[in-house]
Amino acid sequence: MLEELVQNYYDRIQYYFIQRVKDRYYAEDLTQEVFLKVLLALPKQQPENFEAWLFTIAKFTLYDFYRRKKIIFLPEDFAAYIDHDQSSAQKSVDQSALMDSINRLSDKLRRPFILSIRGYNYQEIAAIIGVKESTVKSRIFQARQKIKKQVKE
């Protein structure tokens, strides 16, 4: 049953997210999150209008994503996360400059970097993006170096 639902609705839900978040990786993650919620909810609920119910789940998943994005992307010790060797005087780096630097990163560097900020470990990040753990470590290191360089300029 779930396989049939995925075949019928996956592309439409993913397109819904692509149009709103403008990032294919996030859209894929959000789409998978919706179908996980559907899988968990179906034994308890049998909606009359399944498509409307599915898109309602997608809408609220998107709201949660935006809420998490605001909180998680800018923790108070974000500058310290970039450079562990900074003195406390240097930690007063402008948060908007940091966000601009992150947004300038390529997708292959930005995605593992953001996942690490969210608290995922290297092994989990590797599983999420489908690369080796050593690749994740390298990309996060490269992202930190590029951000430090951009912020100092």
Score class of each variant (00 low, 15 high):
residue 118 R to F: 01
residue 13 I to G: 02
residue 12 R to F: 05
residue 111 R to D: 07
residue 66 Y to W: 11
residue 86 Q to Y: 14
residue 145 Q to D: 15
residue 54 L to K: 00
residue 58 A to W: 03
residue 148 K to R: 11
residue 29 D to T: 12
residue 29 D to W: 11
residue 77 D to H: 11
residue 79 A to M: 04
residue 104 R to Y: 09
residue 119 G to V: 00
residue 139 R to A: 03
residue 10 Y to W: 12
residue 134 S to H: 06
residue 123 Q to R: 11
residue 96 S to I: 12
residue 139 R to S: 03
residue 130 G to I: 01
residue 113 F to C: 00
residue 19 Q to F: 05
residue 67 R to G: 02
residue 23 D to P: 02
residue 8 N to C: 08
residue 69 K to R: 14
residue 18 I to L: 12
residue 7 Q to C: 07
residue 107 D to I: 12
residue 95 Q to I: 15
residue 72 I to G: 04
residue 101 S to T: 02
residue 51 E to Y: 05
residue 34 V to F: 01
residue 57 I to G: 03
residue 58 A to I: 01
residue 145 Q to P: 07
residue 42 L to V: 04
residue 9 Y to D: 04
residue 51 E to A: 04
residue 126 A to I: 04
residue 35 F to H: 07
residue 126 A to D: 07
residue 85 D to T: 11
residue 110 R to W: 05
residue 66 Y to E: 08
residue 44 K to W: 03
residue 47 P to N: 01
residue 80 A to H: 14
residue 128 I to H: 05
residue 93 V to Y: 14
residue 15 Y to V: 10
residue 17 F to L: 01
residue 42 L to N: 05
residue 77 D to V: 03
residue 111 R to V: 11
residue 85 D to G: 06
residue 99 M to S: 08
residue 122 Y to V: 12
residue 112 P to Y: 04
residue 26 Y to T: 15
residue 43 P to I: 01
residue 80 A to M: 12
residue 67 R to Y: 10
residue 148 K to Y: 00
residue 65 F to M: 07
residue 12 R to A: 08
residue 9 Y to V: 00
residue 65 F to I: 08
residue 143 A to E: 10
residue 51 E to R: 08
residue 63 Y to D: 13
residue 11 D to P: 00
residue 146 K to E: 13
residue 100 D to N: 15
residue 30 L to D: 08
residue 78 F to N: 06
residue 87 S to W: 02
residue 71 I to K: 15
residue 21 V to M: 02
residue 92 S to E: 15
residue 86 Q to N: 06
residue 69 K to D: 11
residue 5 L to D: 08
residue 66 Y to I: 02
residue 82 I to T: 06
residue 69 K to E: 14
residue 77 D to T: 06
residue 144 R to M: 08
residue 79 A to G: 11
residue 137 K to D: 00
residue 70 K to N: 12
residue 88 S to Q: 14
residue 116 S to D: 06
residue 89 A to H: 12
